[in-house]
């Protein structure tokens, strides 16, 4: 790794992260719109139970596959359930899956990566396991895991999370290996600081920035992966609406009632688009190399 990539001071990345929202404003344009869209989607999803007109699970054969009306804003699905209510409630679950997968994989990956980067003995074993997990195509692993645990919300999150962990571990480990060689860390070791303290004070800050970026990507891809799992018949039950399973159920009616795919698909794509854009922006801002050149 080049010298430019190494942290300048141990506080800088933290400051960089904290000042992110401030600098975001200066960027204007795309990222700003993305942030607004995402905030609207999150608030709409969070408050969904307060304003949805129908129970998203209430089935009624009489109202199957109806078009938009005063009663059903976006029409109904094949069970006569209100599409609007399902899409906003589905957003809650999809976002939860996205954030859940990101948080779990980042935290587990961070813990494993720190251990791996610091302890030589554990490192080779852990990295072999991680290499193996990475070698298994994630979608196949996820389908197998969902089949193993049954398609509950948690097993879907677990199935999406597991294949992401090795990537986080690798990232954390590479940062640790670089930082370990830094004079101030060596000094801390020489001065007899305890290992947890060194980990916490010197390494955590340097991994935070790349992890935030990684986390946003995992969040976006988790939402997408959930949709693909649903499409392949290994998703969450229809009793828990998600953007993915609304689309998966609606795909049979793609030609006669495209709205069943269009609305959840639009929300999902907008959401992922915003998250990815914000992730890109954060990466550009946090990457010292890029920043230097932009200046």
């Amino acid at each position: 790794m080049s010298a430019a990539n190494a942290p300048v001071s141990r506080l800088q990345p933290v400051l960089g992260l904290l000042s992110l929202p401030l600098r975001l404003r200066k960027l204007g344009g795309g990222p700003m719109i993305a942030a607004i869209v995402l905030i609207i989607i999150v608030i709409a999803a969070a408050l969904a139970p307060l304003y949805i007109p129908h129970d998203p699970l209430a089935i009624n054969a009489i109202y199957r596959l109806k078009g938009p009306s005063e009663m059903f804003l976006l029409g109904t699905d094949a069970y006569g359930r209100d599409l609007f209510s399902r899409v906003v409630m589905g957003g809650r679950v999809s976002l939860f899956i996205g954030v859940g997968a990101a948080v779990v994989s980042v935290s587990l990956g961070l813990a494993i990566g720190l251990v791996s980067g610091f302890f030589r003995v554990a490192d080779s074993i852990i990295m072999r396991i991680m290499d193996s997990l990475m070698a298994i195509p994630s979608i196949l692993l996820a389908i197998a895991l969902v089949a193993l645990n049954g398609p509950s919300l948690w097993s879907v999150i677990a199935a999406i999370t597991l294949p992401e962990i090795p990537r986080v571990v690798r990232l954390v480990r590479s940062v640790v290996l670089t930082v370990r060689e830094e004079p101030y860390v060596e000094a801390a070791v020489a001065l007899g600081s305890s290992m947890p303290k060194i980990l916490w004070q010197h390494l955590m800050p340097n991994t935070l920035a790349p992890l935030t970026v990684q986390g946003t990507y995992i969040c976006a891809s988790a939402i997408l992966t959930e949709a693909i799992l649903s499409f392949l018949g290994a998703g969450v039950s229809t009793e828990i609406p998600t953007w993915g399973n609304i689309m998966a159920e609606g795909r049979l009616y793609f030609q006669i009632k495209p709205s069943l795919i269009f609305w959840p698909g639009l929300m999902l794509s907008l959401c992922i688009l915003s998250i990815n854009l914000l992730g890109d922006t954060a990466r550009d801002l946090l990457d010292p190399r890029l920043r230097k050149r932009e200046a």
């Binding site: 997408l224 993915g244 689309m247 795909r251 698909g265 990815n276 854009l277």
Partner: peptide, 11 residues
Amino acid sequence: SVLGFSVPVFV
């Protein structure tokens, strides 16, 4: 390129 990532393949 961002859009390519954001729309499910089956759609």
